[in-house]
């Protein structure tokens, strides 16, 4: 399994990268961690004539708190999330996800930006970022712009970035008081994509859920929020009956494809079960 030939560029700055991207419009792929792209190239499922490697650009690997949000540099390795005290102590949903993405060696190389920009509903970060209501920062020839995560995932493997834009940062709003989050993923074994995964971020006022966002992994052609489930949860006391209704709504609104992981019916039901579990965990964290 040998990749096809390509031209390789390793710009040292973002502006060089943007220039190269414009020069090779249509031909170039950005290379971040490469943990999805390089296997695809080895199978020659992807044969980009030009690769622009972002790994030599300084200053894209960071996890820090800025003005009410967590800022994650696009080239931050997944393992850095596991090692970040900030993430572990205050961003539980993200911390949950960071432990179950691929496997530990892959997480040393894979990047948060790449995981999101790939716009693969099977990846874990899209659902997580949807649940957080994150923002994606893109740099193009005309400067930077912020894209709400709700507008970022356009289709399978298709994001809202223009051809000459580069994802540079992800911003996650710092959860307020009485907030909690959780990611519950069911995988067949370590390293597998999810049969289903549910990301929940919510705020509680006593027993009542005052806000909630739910993202789903690998049960739809495009990364999705379970909006009907959210609606059934917000403003409600979180009882077992309520959870059942919320889970059932998530199961109904997702759109999984049958494959070796299971039938669509099975994946829907697992989504129902995991939605309940993720909410329970998030509520526990919000109220403890």
């Amino acid at each position: 399994m040998i990749p096809g030939a390509f031209d390789y560029h390793a710009p040292g700055t973002l502006s060089e990268a943007v220039t190269l991207l414009r020069q090779h419009a249509g031909d170039a792929k950005l290379l971040a961690g490469g943990q999805s792209l390089i296997p695809a190239m080895r199978f020659r499922l992807a044969m980009p004539p030009v690769l622009i490697d972002l790994n030599q650009i300084e200053g894209l690997e960071y996890v820090r708190e800025d003005n009410g949000h967590l800022a994650i540099g696009a080239m931050t390795r997944e393992s850095a999330l596991e090692e970040s005290g900030l993430v572990q102590s205050r961003f539980h949903l993200l911390a949950d996800a960071a432990r179950v993405i691929a496997d530990p060696v892959v997480r040393n190389r894979a990047t948060v930006g790449g995981n999101i920009a790939h716009a693969d509903p099977a990846n874990d970060h899209p659902a997580v970022m949807l649940a957080y209501g994150a923002e994606v920062i893109a740099l193009g020839p005309n400067g930077t712009r912020a894209i709400a995560i709700d507008n970022f995932f356009v289709d399978l493997f298709e994001n809202a970035l223009a051809e000459d834009e580069i994802l540079t940062e992800i911003r996650i709003p710092t959860p307020g008081a009485n907030s909690g989050g959780a990611y519950v993923k069911m995988e067949r074994k370590v390293g597998d994509y999810a049969i289903s995964g549910v990301a929940v971020q919510l705020t509680m006022n006593g027993d009542t859920c005052t806000s909630a966002r739910i993202g789903l992994t690998n049960v739809s052609p495009t990364p999705m929020r379970a909006k009907q489930a959210e609606q059934l949860l917000v403003g409600q006391v979180v009882t077992d009956e309520r959870l059942e209704a919320v889970g059932a709504a998530a199961a109904a609104e997702c759109d999984p494809s049958p494959d070796l992981r299971g039938s669509a019916e099975y994946k829907r039901d697992v989504t129902r079960v995991l939605t309940k579990r993720a909410i329970r965990q998030a509520v526990e964290r919000a109220t403890s």
Partner: peptide, 17 residues
């Protein structure tokens, strides 16, 4: 014995979570 097979058996028996 995949999770789906067990789930199916449970479902046929009316057991769920």
């Amino acid at each position: 014995i995949t999770p789906q097979k067990v789930w199916q058996a449970l479902r046929d028996a009316g057991v769920t979570d």
